[in-house]
């Protein structure tokens, strides 16, 4: 878990840097000379690295075995996945109908993380509330 959190922080830092055009020198890309490689042409690899770090970290935080991993935890995971899928789909549908242009693109960008984020939130909240009720 600490490694996952560190990876998440690294991803967020790289992402913020990417959005503010503060690109680390060793992540600058050399320009391609046309051809098929032009399809994936980019100025740097910082955005790719940031996205990878964030997604991998969120996956690890969400799916790393819990200390009391058993069938009830599996059940909570399953329920959280269902809810996350529902909310993400609803978000995309609403975004499609009510937003356009750059705002819609931003919503789609957020959707890259939203499924894992929603899953993580639902799962942790369910775990916390069950634990809290149990202690009462």
């Amino acid at each position: 878990m600490p490694y996952a959190l560190l990876t998440l922080l690294l991803g967020i830092a790289l992402g913020i840097g990417y959005m503010n055009n503060s690109i680390l020198p060793f992540l600058e890309a050399k320009p391609h000379s046309g051809g098929l490689s032009a399809l994936i042409e980019r100025n740097n690899y910082q955005g790719d690295l940031a996205l990878t770090c964030i997604l991998v970290a969120l996956y690890l935080i969400g799916f790393t075995k819990h200390k009391n991993e058993d069938e009830f935890i599996d059940f909570l995971r399953y329920q959280s996945l269902l809810k996350a899928a529902l909310f993400q789909t609803a978000g995309i549908v609403i975004g499609t109908w009510f937003f356009g242009g750059l705002t819609f693109l931003n919503i789609m960008l957020l959707n890259l993380f939203s499924f894992l984020l929603l899953f993580l939130v639902f799962f942790k909240v369910q775990l916390y509330t069950t634990g809290k009720k149990m202690r009462k």
Binding site: N68, F72, T130, M134
Partner: peptide, 10 residues
């Protein structure tokens, strides 16, 4: 039973 207290409670 090799489970957690949360499971028994649930």
């Amino acid at each position: 039973v090799g489970s957690s207290r949360q499971t028994v409670y649930a």
